[in-house]
Structures are given as structure tokens and as C-alpha cells.
């Protein structure tokens, strides 16, 4: 039965031309501990993919491998058709301008104000005039729902939710095609988390983003994810929630049928 669902996912995959991210035969290990083994994953253009898995199943490692912070032991990662391990320094830089990353706690540069944080990628990658750059910065601040006075504040003066929004504003500075989010709603209160979900949903639709989101938040999985990738047994199973529910792997069943999941589904 598991096999069957995977096949349907594969068939769907063929209908879509070129995936934005294509991972093949990925192997990651720390010492003798293998985290990923022969892992395949496709992320389609314009979708929101939620990545879930138990603690230590290598969700963040996968994200770090895809964005090139970690070199895999085997396998390939292709982003927009380009193998990330075979890029020249310059091509790699161009590619990095195509994606934005929101780290878990925002990872803002603590010595820079929010506005300056947003301007770091703008200064590095664009030739905007001073005036237009300030305007674009303001646009990003508004887009991510930060209050106007946040621009001149420093990261240590912001609340956790605002730091995430500021991190998102920096990730979106260049209007990337792909957005990587590492647990975007962790540590936010339910209202803040729901707002953040909504924000990502709207931005994704209006900017046509492809979103790769590591999360544990069942509500956001249901609210904004088109498909869900489950990391189990060093591999990945992808599907919509309905498809995943048909699989009888114990972890998946427990995850999507547990009391919290039932509450999230509104059953």
C-alpha cells in the first residue's frame, strides 16, 4: 500500500515539467551515524512543501544540505536544474540570490538595525540607488507586517515574533524564487503563528514563491502546505495529507492521527 501511494506521487511528478529542487540519492552522515540514505525529493515550482519528521530525523540537516551549508557524502542536489556541487563560485553566488532563508530564530545580524539587516543582501546583489533601496526596505517591512518603527530597532530590542518577521523580510529582500523556512512558527503564540502562516500564504501567492518549510506545527501544515514530506527511516515520503493518511507506517499514523493532529483537523 505504501508502495502504491508512492507510485501515484511519482506519476504526478512526471506531469510537472522541471522541479525547482531535485534531490537524488542523498546521503548524509555524521561519523558512523547515517542521517539520510539514498534520499530522493522533488519540490515543484510554486508549491509549499512542509517537511516533518521526528527529532533527530535530519530535517534541518536536509535544509542545510540543500542550501549548501553542508556538503553531502553522496548524491546530488539540483536547484533550478543546476547541480549545486558543480558550481563555480560566481554561479553559486547567482544561485544564492535566487533563494531566501529564514533561520530558526531569525539569525539577524545583531550589530545592525532591522533596516540595515534587510539592506545587506540588497547592497551585495543590486545596484539600487540609496533612495530606492530605502523605499524597497520599507516595502519589505510592510509586507512582512512589521510595525513602521521597527526599522530602526536592533534585533535585541525585538520580540521573538518580530525577529522572525524581520528575518523573513531579509529573506525576501531580493524577491527570491525559493523560500526556505526553518520552523517559522516555533516559539510563537497561536495567534502570532496563525498570522505568520497567513503571511507566508499571501506572500507565496502574490510572489509566486516556492516554499520549503521545515515545521512541526500541524496547523501550518494544514493551513498552507500543498504537500508534506515526511522524513522516516532516512528517506522521504511525499504526498498530500490525504495521501499520507493512507500509508500505514506507524510514525505517520501516529503523527497524523494523534490527539494533537485530530484537534488540528477539527475532528
Amino acid at each position: 500500500m505504501a508502495q502504491q501511494a508512492l507510485v501515484t506521487a511519482d506519476q504526478q511528478r512526471e506531469a510537472v515539467p522541471e522541479p525547482v529542487i531535485r534531490v537524488r540519492g542523498l546521503r548524509n552522515q555524521f561519523g558512523t551515524q547515517v542521517v539520510h540514505d539514498n534520499l530522493d525529493l522533488d519540490v515543484r515550482k510554486g508549491e509549499v512543501l512542509g517537511v516533518v519528521g521526528g527529532s533527530g530525523s535530519g530535517k534541518s540537516v536536509l535544509l542545510r544540505t540543500i542550501i549548501g551549508l553542508r556538503r553531502q557524502q553522496a548524491g546530488t542536489v539540483e536547484i533550478m536544474g543546476r547541480d549545486t556541487s558543480k558550481l563555480t563560485e560566481r554561479d553559486a553566488k547567482d544561485l544564492r540570490a535566487q533563494w531566501g532563508v529564514l533561520f530558526q530564530d531569525g539569525a539577524l545580524f545583531s550589530s545592525l538595525s532591522v533596516a540595515e539587516n534587510i539592506q545587506v543582501p540588497l547592497k551585495e546583489y543590486t545596484k539600487l540607488s540609496r533612495r530606492l533601496m530605502d523605499e524597497v526596505t520599507r516595502v519589505k517591512i510592510v509586507m512582512t507586517g512589521l510595525p513602521a518603527d521597527a526599522a530602526v530597532k536592533f534585533p535585541s530590542e525585538l520580540s521573538g515574533g518580530m525577529r522572525k518577521r524581520a528575518g523573513l523580510a531579509r529573506a525576501l529582500a531580493l524577491d527570491p524564487n525559493i523560500l526556505f523556512l526553518d520552523e517559522p512558527t516555533a516559539g510563537l503564540d497561536p495567534i502570532g503563528a496563525a498570522n505568520f502562516d497567513q503571511l507566508i500564504g499571501t506572500l507565496q501567492q502574490s510572489l509566486g514563491l516556492t516554499v520549503f518549510m521545515v515545521t512541526h506545527d500541524l496547523d501550518s501544515l494544514i493551513a498552507i502546505c500543498d504537500r508534506i514530506a515526511v522524513l522516516i527511516d532516512k528517506k522521504i515520503v511525499v504526498g498530500t495529507i490525504k495521501e499520507l493518511l493512507k500509508l500505514d507506517h506507524p510514525w505517520i499514523q501516529e503523527y497524523f492521527r494523534g490527539p494533537r493532529a485530530r484537534a488540528a483537523f477539527g475532528e
Partner: peptide, 20 residues
Amino acid sequence: PEHAGLFANISSAKDVPELQ
């Protein structure tokens, strides 16, 4: 239509004061 959302998103940027 796919660009309409963008305008909706940024329309309030004009109210943000100049970065001082």
C-alpha cells in the same frame, strides 16, 4: 491577476515614514 496580490501587499508602505 497574479500581480494584483503584490499591490495589495505593499499599498501600506507609503505610510511608513522615511527611514530616519
